[in-house]
Amino acid sequence: MNEAPLPARPSRLNAELALKILAVLAVIYTFYFCRSLLLPIILAAFIALFASPAVRFLARLKFPKPLASLLILTLIVMGVGYGISLLYSPASAWLERLPLLSSKLALQVDDMAGSLDSLKSSMLPDNEDDKSPFDSALGSGFLPLISMLAQTTAMMLFQLATVIILTYLFLVFGGTLLRNIVRGASTLHEKKNLVKMYQTIEHDISRYVLVIAVINTMLGVATFAVLSMLGVADPLLWGVLATVLNFAPYLGPFILTVLLTAVGFVEFQSPGQALLVPTAFLILNVIESQLVTPMALGKRFNMNPLLVVIWMFVWGWIWGAVGVLIAIPLLVCLKIIASHFELLPYWRILLSADSEAQHNK
């Protein structure tokens, strides 16, 4: 009796998995190599998405939509510009002071351990007038460095202007584009799904960003108050950094903790006082991340921390610091779309926290 041949299902599954992996890699490399084109478009779309409720509010007050869009965009640009100008001087001063950290840390460790004298004497040059190889390399590469900085600045200004123009166009003509997309749908069910999806994304993303912005602002104010009581210079700068960096969960607070550790050793002589600065911020961040944010957002936006950090690293590699800051709103947006259309159920369960995943099961 002849046995029936086994179906070639494993090989077919392996081929499908390989195709999915290749498709994901192709998308990642497309976003990476086209970042100068795609980043301004996506950033402008997110800004327009956040600002569209304010534009609609002004439109209900009989403002023409182009004028309302221009007014809201002008307020956003003026607010960001004023904040940068307010923080530019203290930030520049700290950038000049932070190189002193290495020598001050060496003195702190020397006071605590008393065993670095020979190491420091062996590392210091015999003649202070002699130029080190680093100085020679810096001198020889000064003009190329200036040229590279000029090109980078010009590119950043061009992309900034592109983001502003695209944001205005999204605010003015985004509704028309959405109506044309809905009109192009083949069935009434698809049209309703598209409208509902857009309304859900706009509502949930706007709510998410508003709640996170309020919480991060409260964290920044608390950081400002605590550092002021500790006697740290320029507490407003660190409060603003706490607000901005906290938009990148886990990674942003870690970066600020490292910076505040350096600030503590620059500001204070005692190691205990120096370590009190980052410790105070860590306590505030734990209260925010473990108590305030989960209570404010609930389980709907609760996501696996490990995958969130990996996601931010991926977008940081693709689009740099801006990619890290918009990674979480982008992830929330994709999660809403997947939930709305019942797409990628395994991915949604994997992304969710343990409690939510078990509930879905």
Rank of each mutant, 00 (worst) to 15 (best):
I318R: 07
L275I: 07
E288P: 07
N246T: 12
V308Y: 01
V240Y: 10
P294K: 15
I215W: 06
R300L: 10
Q290I: 01
L210W: 14
V209H: 03
F265I: 09
T293E: 15
T261L: 07
L237A: 12
A248L: 00
V240L: 08
L237P: 04
A222T: 08
E267G: 05
L284E: 06
P253W: 00
Q290E: 04
I310G: 12
G231V: 00
N285H: 11
L325S: 07
I215Q: 09
L210V: 12
L227T: 03
L236N: 07
S270Y: 05
M295T: 12
A280R: 10
V322T: 05
L275W: 03
A222Y: 03
A296T: 13
L230H: 06
P253H: 03
P249G: 14
P271S: 13
L275S: 09
L260S: 08
A233C: 05
N304G: 05
V209Q: 04
Q199S: 14
A233E: 15
A233R: 11
F281C: 04
A321H: 01
T217N: 04
V286G: 09
V308S: 10
S270Q: 11
V209T: 11
L219G: 05
W311H: 10
A296N: 15
L236S: 11
F301K: 04
G323L: 00
P235E: 15
M218C: 08
N216R: 05
V314D: 07
T293F: 09
T261C: 12
